[in-house]
Every structure is written in structure tokens, then in C-alpha cells.
Design a protein around this nucleic acid. Structure first.
Lengths: 224, 224
DNA sequence: ATACATTTGAAACAGTCGTTTGAATTGGGG
DNA sequence: CCCCAATTCAAACGACTGTTTCAAATGTAT
């Protein structure tokens, strides 16, 4: 049975958005792949911008609550968890996205990467206003695992981590072509996640540098 | 005195490419900012694609030889360098780019990020074919600092590191808005670089996980 | 079957894109 | 000064973009 027009559009749009970016994907390409009429995008979603939002939302509304729950459970269970445990809490919520559709986890990570570089801040704002508590809980968990880490350093290291993960997933196709013999088969996403956890856990756990120079007004204010 | 038309185009193009991406920057926007005629881009560079290449090339041809030299010096001086020393070898070649123009280091990193996500593999291919030896030397240096690290793990961790650095630099404007009180002033690029080195050095130095599952044909071949 | 709201369809809209054209202008060597 | 090449310029090209329009088709409740 043929799926909803709305669903058909979302399914094709997210694939194309993930692999070519938002502005390099035309509505005509999406609708032709989805075998629906061009005007149906504007009918069902209003505009291309809202279609992009809808594509991201479909994943976020299952991922973010699952992450929130996993981190809450971690913080309740351990007073001072290992850093690897903190990031292992992401694994199950991420893999759950494969239930939405095949390769769902990979698609979601690629879309996140596109959103961060394409729209320059819009996505960040959207995440914080809609899923602020869950995001704040990430900082709580890292603080529980490494209480001695200064707040400014925590902020930066979490951003480094975001970069590591998003970039890795975003360029997964290219990586598959290099590391695999047959490049049609995609890299096992769970294996990549398991491989990156030691890296980011060790990075966030790095010793606090001696010459920790404060260079922002806000941080200098904290110092006083 | 008014600069070369060619130089004026390059100077404006790299700013716009860095902050909005390649396909979201029209030639009309570039030429109007540079106060030159629209057709001069095609006259001097042939096409938009070749302009993008020229923009990247201007930085790569000073950065890559400097990096090559710094890594060669490191490998000659120490038999087994510290991991932080490996990445500190990047600092001076990167900061040298500020000599090309103001904010040169930041611009270069942002352009690299755009190139990696926009063109999907073209940049990677270009780098390897044109600066293969220098890139291979990065692997040599990490191997010298951590000889026990299996080749497949080395490959992945270097990719994680690339992601950390490029993503951090690419989203530097957004970071400045968050971490600074006055967001007009850009984040001190050298401070960010110094801050990221402990993170990536620690990440690459992470212990080899017990259950190191080999998941690619090529790696399994290495195992035999 | 009739009436009505929902959805689909083909076509056109106004705008932007990279590129090309051919004439006008510029600048240096004989 | 003159010639010729290099460069700049305004204008147009065809292709593509997101969006709108309005008629046709579809489904649903009466």
C-alpha cells in the first residue's frame, strides 16, 4: 500500500538533505523521487523551510526524550559515573532511530551536521528552546564524572565533542568508500559509535592545563 | 592604491564562502562586494568551481609545506614525541596564515569545513593528490607518539580529530556569540587552538579498547 | 446521489543563478 | 601617436529556483 503523501515527501527529503545539504536539494528533485506533485510540499508543509524543520523534528522528538531519560537514569544510579558511561548513555537513544526507518541513526546525525553548518545558529536556537532541559543534562552528567573541570573548559570540550561526532557521521559515506572494500555497503553505525566513545571520553577527561588562560569577560567574571 | 581585480575577488569570495558556504554565495554578491564587474570572475578564473579551488589553494600552498616541515623537524628531533607535541606542530603553520590576511587562520579552517561538507569528497581527493606526503606525515607523527595503536584505530582517531578541529573552527562565530559578552569581537583563535590540543591529544592517546572489533574487509585482511 | 472539504494536478509566476556575448575602455611597446 | 592585446562593462542567455494559481480529482458524510 502506498504511503501518505506527507510521509513520502519526508522520507525522500531527509535522504536528499542528508547527502547534498538543504539548499542543494530542490523541491523538484524531492517530489520527483517521492513520485508526488511539486505543489504538495507547499500544500502539506507550507514552505521548504518548514519541510526542513519537519524532517529534523521527526527524529528529535524520539531522540531527545530518550536521551533525557537515559541521562537521568545515569545520574540517579551513580554519584560519580565513569566518563565512558556518560557517552554510552547516548548509544541506545541513537540506535533507537533505526526503528524510524533504515539507516535512521546515520541520517539523523548527517542532518544534524547539515543543520549546524547550513543555517548557522538556527538549529542551535531551536534545540535549546525546545529541548533545553535534556541538553543541560549532558553538562550535568559530564560534571558528575569530572567535577574538577572548570565550567569554561566544560563548555569548550562539549563543543569539541559535538564536532567530533557530527563531523564523523556527516562524512560517513566518504569514510565508507575509504575504509571498506565495497563502498556500496555503508559502515556499521554502531561500530563507529563504539569506536568514538573512548576517544571523546578521553578527550573530555583530559587533565586541566596549567596555563588555563581566561580570555572572555564572562569567564573572568566567574574568576572573581 | 586599488588592488588587483583578481585579488579583490579572492578576498571577498573567501569571506563569503566561509560564512555562508559555496552554493549559498552567488557570484553577484561576491562581485558587488568586491566592486568589480560580474563577468570578471569568469574572465579571471573561468568558472565558479575554479574560483573555489583558487580560494582554498591560496591558503593550502602556504600551510601544507609549513606543516610538512614542522612534522619533519619533530620526527627528526624526538624518537617518541608526546602526543601534545604532535599537535602543537600545527600551531605555527596555522598562525602563519594570519599573515596572508586578517583572520586568515579562522577563514582557512572555516573554508576547510565548508569544503568537506559541501563538495563531499572532492576536497579530500584534492588534498591527497596534491599534498599526499605532508598528510601521510601526520600519521607518521602520531604513530611515533603511540606505536601500539593499531592502524585501523589510528585512521579513525585521526578522522575524529579532523572533525573536532574543523567543526570547532567552522562554528566559531556562533561560539563567539555565546561565550563572549560582546559578540562583535571574534574569539581569539590561538586561545581556541591551545584549548583544543589537550582534548585531541588525549582522545588520540585513549587506551585501546578490549573488544576491538574489526568490521571492514581491509582491516580484517591486515589482521591475518 | 448530492454536497462539500480535502487533496492532487498541470501550468505559470517572478526571481535568481552561472555563464556568454560583443562592444567599450584601458594600458604599454613600437 | 598608433596599434594591439588585456581588461572591463552592460546586457542578455537559458536553466533552474520556491511559490502560487485554479481546475480536476478524490474522499466523506448526509
Amino acid at each position: 500500500m502506498r504511503l501518505d503523501t506527507k510521509t513520502r515527501i519526508l522520507d525522500e527529503a531527509e535522504i536528499l538533505f542528508a547527502e547534498r545539504g538543504f539548499s542543494d536539494t530542490s523541491l523538484r528533485l524531492i517530489t520527483s523521487r517521492a513520485e508526488v506533485n511539486l505543489a504538495s510540499v507547499n500544500y502539506h508543509f507550507g514552505s521548504k523551510k518548514e519541510l526542513i524543520r519537519a524532517v529534523l523534528e521527526r527524529y528529535l522528538e524520539t531522540f531527545m526524550p530518550a536521551l533525557d531519560q537515559a541521562l537521568t537514569h545515569l545520574l540517579r544510579t551513580y554519584q560519580r559515573p565513569e566518563m565512558t558511561q556518560v557517552f554510552e548513555a547516548f548509544v541506545e537513544p541513537l540506535l533507537k532511530l533505526n526503528g524510524i526507518r533504515e539507516q535512521g541513526t546515520t541520517l539523523f546525525m548527517q542532518l544534524l551536521g547539515r543543520g549546524y553548518s547550513d543555517t548557522q545558529g538556527h538549529l542551535r536556537w531551536y534545540l535549546i528552546t525546545n529541548y533545553g532541559p535534556a541538553i543541560a543534562k549532558i553538562g550535568d552528567a559530564v560534571r558528575a564524572a569530572y567535577p574538577e573541570l572548570p565550567p569554561s573548559e566544560l563548555f569548550w570540550r562539549l563543543h569539541f565533542t559535538l564536532g567530533t561526532v557530527i563531523f564523523t557521521m556527516a562524512s560517513q559515506r566518504a569514510l565508507g568508500e575509504i575504509s571498506d572494500a565495497d563502498f556500496n555497503e555503508s559502515v556499521d553505525i554502531e561500530a563507529v559509535i563504539r569506536r568514538v566513545i573512548p576517544y571523546i571520553a578521553s578527550g573530555v577527561s583530559a587533565p586541566i592545563p596549567e596555563n588555563l588562560r581566561m580570555n572572555t569577560q564572562k569567564v573572568q567574571a566567574l574568576k572573581v
